[in-house]
Computed example of a mutant assay.
Amino acid sequence: MARQTQSEFKAFERLFNKIRRAKAEKRRSAVGTLTPAVMRKHLASGAPLDLLYGVNRDGTAFTVDDLKKFDKKAQATRKKYGAGKRGVRIDQLIKASKSVDIERCKTDLRTARFYRIFNSTDGVKLHFQTSASPGSQYTHHQVIVRLDEWGDWLTSTLPFNQAAQRILNGRISFDCDCGRHQYWYRYLATIGGFAVKPLEYSYPKIRNPKLTGACCKHVLKVFVTMRGPAVQRLIMAEMKKDAEKIGFGGDRSSANRFLNQKELSTVERSARAMKSEKAFDDYLKAQKAFKKKLKEPKTMKSLEEATKKAQLKAATMEKIARKERQGREKAERDVVLAKFHGHMMASIYRDKLTKNQAISSFAKDNNMKVADVKEMAKNITV
Rank of each mutant, 00 (worst) to 15 (best):
Trp150Ala: 13
Cys176Asn: 00
Cys216Asn: 00
Gln182Ala: 15
Leu158Asn: 11
Met226Thr: 02
Leu147Asp: 09
Glu238Leu: 14
Tyr183Gln: 13
Arg171Met: 08
Cys216Leu: 10
Tyr187Val: 07
His181Arg: 08
Gly213Ile: 05
Arg207Tyr: 06
Cys176Leu: 01
Ser173Cys: 07
Ala237Ile: 10
Tyr185Ser: 05
Tyr187Lys: 02
Gly170Arg: 02
Leu199Thr: 02
Leu154Ile: 08
Val231Phe: 10
Ile191Met: 08
Gly179Asn: 05
Pro204Cys: 12
Val196Lys: 00
Leu168His: 00
Leu158Ala: 11
Pro204Leu: 01
Ala230Phe: 07
Trp153Arg: 07
Leu147Met: 11
Leu158Lys: 12
Cys176Met: 09
Gly179Glu: 12
Pro229Asp: 12
His181Lys: 14
Gly170Cys: 03
Ser173His: 03
Tyr187Ser: 03
Gly193Leu: 05
Pro209Met: 04
Gln162Asn: 09
Arg180Ala: 06
Ala164Pro: 03
Gly228Lys: 08
Thr190Met: 01
Phe174Ser: 09
Met236Trp: 15
Arg207Phe: 01
Gln232Arg: 13
Lys217Tyr: 01
Arg207Met: 14
Val219Ser: 04
Lys205Cys: 12
Ala214Val: 03
Tyr183Gly: 11
Val224Met: 02
Ile191Ser: 02
Ala230Val: 14
Arg227Met: 12
Trp153Gln: 15
Arg171Lys: 10
Val231Asp: 02
Leu168Lys: 03
Lys221Ser: 09
Ala163Lys: 10
Gly213Gln: 05
Glu238Pro: 07
Arg233Lys: 15
Ala237Glu: 09
Glu149Ala: 03
Phe160Lys: 08
Thr225Tyr: 03
Glu149Tyr: 09
Pro159Ala: 07
Ala164Asp: 07
Leu220Ala: 03
Trp184Phe: 14
Arg166Asp: 02
Leu168Asp: 04
Lys210Val: 07
Leu168Asn: 00
Ile167Ala: 02
Thr190Trp: 06
Pro204Val: 00
Arg233Ser: 08
Asn161Glu: 12
Gly151Asp: 15
Asn161Leu: 07
Ala195Glu: 06
Leu220Tyr: 06
Pro198Ile: 11
Leu154Val: 09
Lys210Cys: 06
Asn169Gln: 04
Asn208Val: 00
Tyr183Leu: 13
Pro159Lys: 07
Asn161Trp: 08
Trp153Phe: 13
Thr212Phe: 08
Arg233Val: 05
